[in-house]
Amino acid sequence: MSKLKIKNLHVNVGDKEILKGIDLEIHSGEIHAIMGPNGNGKSTLLSAIMGHPKYSITEGSITLDDQDVLSMSVDERSRAGIFLGMQYPQEIPGVTNSDFLKSALNARLEKPLSVFQFIKKLDKNIEELQMNENLAHRYLNEGFSGGEKKRNEILQMKLLQPQFALLDEIDSGLDVDALRIVAEAINSMRSDDFSCVMVSHYERLFELVQPTHVHVLIQGKIVTTGGYDLIEKIDQEGYDWLKELGVVLEEEQDQQPIILGSCARKVVE
C-alpha cells in the first residue's frame, strides 16, 4: 500500500498564485476525480505533482510514502511511480515512438528489455488499445490526431505500469468508441497497487471509470469532496449551487457581447 500525500500546497506561475492550499491524500486502490470550472487550477495541480518547471511551489509538501517528491527531478518522480497523462502531449520530430517507448521502459529496469520482449509487449498493448500498427515507426505524436495522442498517453501508462497515474483531460478529443477503449484500459489497471487522479469536464468518463472520491477545485482550493453522487449533481446543475456553500465563483471576465443581427452562439471552450 502506498500513499501520495499533498499538504497545504501553494503553487505560483510567475507572480500569480494558482493553488492556494491543497490538501489531498491518495491511497493505492483509489480513483479520484477532480472537477471544477476552467482556469481554477486542476491541470496546475497535476503538473505540479509531476514537476513541470513552469510551476513554482511556494508552500506545502508532496510526499510519496516517506519520499519527498518536491526534491526529486521530473524523471526521478516518474521512476518513483508517478505518471502524468498530459492534456497536450508534445510532438517530438525525428524520435520514433518505439525508440522513445523503449528508452522509457528501460529507464526503470536494471536489465534492458531485449528487442523481442519489447516488441511483444508493445504489440500486445497496441492491439488492446486498437491503435494503428504503424504507430511504432511514426515520430512521437507528430501528425497524430487529438484522439491518437490521448491513446498514446494511455499506451505509455500501460507500458510503464505506474503506481500513481494522473490523467489530465484524457477524454478530450476522443470519440465514443475511443473513450470506451481508454476507459477499459484504465479499468484494467485498477488494483490494490494502483491509484489514479483524473481531471475531466465530462460525466461520461467517470461513468465508465467510476471514481471512489470526487473533489471540486475552485479558485485554487478544494471546496468540497464527496462520492460519485457529486458528479451527477454537477452534471445536472453545474457549479452554481456551490455558492450556497459559501463558494465565490469568479465572474466571467470577458463576456462575449451579443451583436444584434447575428446568431448568439454558445461559445464552447
Binding site: 509531476m50 527531478s73 522513445f100 522509457a104
Partner: peptide, 15 residues
C-alpha cells in the same frame, strides 16, 4: 524546446 525535455523526462528518461 523545454517542453520536449519535460515530456521525455516525465516518462523516466534522465535529462
Amino acid at each position: 524546446d523545454d517542453e520536449h525535455l519535460y515530456y521525455l523526462q516525465s516518462r523516466g528518461l534522465t535529462k
